[in-house]
């Protein structure tokens, strides 16, 4: 993400030379800029505060979660630590989860699949996965995840048999959940780095399994 636009604007003394992306801004978008400016003028927050938050969030992405999952797949002791004390396991991997109040990892198995939603709001493990995708915040997902999880999974391309147990978590409080998807078959011998590519964001929300092994990456299958 580019830096805070008004920071640029101030560096160039006047409004000359500052880009004009704001022409098409909605009523509410304009108010965001106004609020930001007022908060700066009043000294409530600083430009550095705002930029630090932009940088923080830009550094978060599903790749962090994928590293956790891939390591858990290849290292049973790490998996045990990840399930028992997820924040400590994150710290071990250089992932800063300290801003999470509580962090819980839900382990999928052949017989059990977990799926996470926040029906009241759109709570999401942002320090681990970054900002949530639009669909996660949509009214339709929030409404349907709790009473039609299998239908939701079907829309995401996954059909589960009735013998598999689906566990939906509605995260209403301070606990943030990450799904530890099942390791796909045929991935024996793949490196952690290769495995991490199979761990999609959606598989850590739990609406689908991890990607199947790519034919070319099968080693000892």
């Amino acid at each position: 993400m580019s830096v805070d636009p008004s920071a640029k604007q101030n560096e160039t003394t006047q409004e000359h030379g500052h880009p004009h992306p704001k022409h098409e801004l909605s009523y509410h978008a304009k108010r965001i800029y106004a609020i930001r400016e007022l908060l700066l003028e009043k000294g409530v927050v600083t430009r550095e505060d705002i930029q630090a938050q932009i940088d923080y969030q830009e550094a978060r992405s599903p790749a962090n979660g994928a590293r956790l999952v891939a390591r858990a797949w290849v290292d049973p002791k790490f998996k045990a630590r990840l399930l028992a004390d997820p924040k400590a396991a994150c710290a071990e991997m250089g992932i800063d989860a300290t801003s999470l109040n509580e962090f819980v990892v839900l382990e999928n198995s052949e017989k059990v699949r977990h799926m996470v939603v926040c029906t009241l709001c759109s709570c999401y493990p942002r320090p681990i996965l970054g900002r949530p995708p639009d669909w996660y915040k949509s009214f339709n997902y929030r409404a349907r995840a709790v009473n039609d999880p299998r239908g939701v999974m079907r829309e995401f391309g996954q059909e589960l048999g009735a013998d598999i147990e689906v566990r939906v978590h509605d995260s209403t409080a301070d606990i943030r959940y990450l799904v530890l998807p099942l390791r796909p078959p045929g991935t024996e011998g793949m490196s952690g780095e290769e495995l991490a590519k199979l761990v999609t964001r959606d598989s850590m929300i739990g609406v689908v399994d991890a990607l199947p092994a790519l034919p070319g990456s099968r080693k000892n299958a």
Binding site: V146, R150, D163, I164, V166, R167, V168, H169, T172
Partner: peptide
């Protein structure tokens, strides 16, 4: 899907 469950905080 009789085994399905819902968990809420």
């Amino acid at each position: 899907a009789p085994k399905d469950k819902l968990y809420i905080d």
